[in-house]
């Protein structure tokens, strides 16, 4: 494991040579990311610091390596059931619906949302923005092609959200997964069908040092399993950013093990797995 001093040197070097800043990341998981990078590239800390200082591309690669991109289609189906039956049902009545996926990774949750919007016939009334610090994952999100075999739970999640209604057990929608995804077992891929593409506006965005770059306020912000990598100081700063970026009565959706613990919690009302701005 890199020492506290090693991490300190890493932070200082990054701040000196780039616009990035990792000082407010969660200490233990950040140290673990750096340890993994040192092992994967077979470098010691001095060599790593030299290489990121000398090679701009390598620095960008390291930034990508630090960020974690785990995501899933309809991850935590209960949350998506609430999005469908509670949150979207509510915004249905208004004109334009603005949605921000902050930390969209490879796009699975963006497509989860697009599927729900299609099913609820809201697609022509939304503006969807999706951002990530890592441009590689944004490119993957745009393509929307995922490995099939490791992700079979996507289909199970899809059924739980799209086919059944936990608020009304008599309802059953016979909508097949193939309506939205082309599954190719030979190539081991599932690919988003064209009807969901070209609707989303993707941008590179660093939550740590950038403000709301879209000159608009949002009705729904999703930022799931991103804040866990940040310490409470940075989390509080982002809760403020999200609060400022939401319309009144707008919804903030976090990961199921994330919560607003600091002073900004008084700006929101918590409902199960999501927060409504007061």
């Amino acid at each position: 494991m890199p020492t506290v001093e090693d991490i300190y040197r890493f932070h200082n070097t990054i701040k000196e040579i780039s616009k990035y800043d990792f000082t407010e990341y969660s200490e233990k998981s950040f140290a673990r990311r750096i340890e993994k990078i040192l092992v994967d590239y077979r470098l010691n800390m001095d060599e790593l610091l030299d290489k990121i200082t000398e090679e701009k591309d390598f620095l960008e690669q390291i930034v990508k390596d630090i960020t974690v991109n785990t995501t899933e289609l309809f991850r935590d189906p209960k949350v998506w059931q609430a999005i469908k039956h509670r949150i979207l049902a509510k915004v249905k009545k208004q004109g334009t619906i603005n949605i921000w996926h902050a930390g969209c990774s490879t796009g699975q949750e963006v497509y989860s949302m697009l599927i729900l919007l299609t099913e609820l016939d809201l697609l022509d009334r939304v503006r969807i923005y999706a951002t990530d610090i890592n441009i590689d994952v944004i490119e993957k999100a745009k393509i929307g092609e995922y490995v099939y075999r490791f992700n079979i739970e996507y289909i199970e999640n899809f059924k739980q959200v799209i086919q059944v209604n936990p608020y009304n057990f008599e309802e059953y929608n016979n909508i097949p997964f193939s309506k939205y995804f082309e599954v190719n077992k030979v190539n081991d891929t599932m690919t988003v069908k064209p009807l969901l593409k070209n609707i989303v506006s993707y941008h590179k965005h660093d939550l740590v040092c950038e403000d709301n770059i879209f000159k608009t306020k949002f009705d729904i912000i999703l930022c799931r399993n991103v804040l866990i990598y940040f310490n409470t100081t940075l989390q509080n700063k982002l809760f403020k950013l999200f609060s400022d970026s939401l319309n009144r009565k707008g919804t903030l959706i976090l990961g199921i093990h994330e919560s607003i613990l600091g002073p900004i919690s008084s700006s929101f009302i918590k409902y199960g797995n999501y927060y409504i701005k007061k």
Partner: peptide, 21 residues
């Protein structure tokens, strides 16, 4: 530790979670 998350003990006696590999 929640399913599918790593559980870390952080300085300052708090938890942190992670979904890294």
């Amino acid at each position: 530790a929640p399913a599918n998350y790593h559980l870390y003990i952080e300085p300052g006696n708090t938890f942190s979670l992670s979904t890294e590999e």
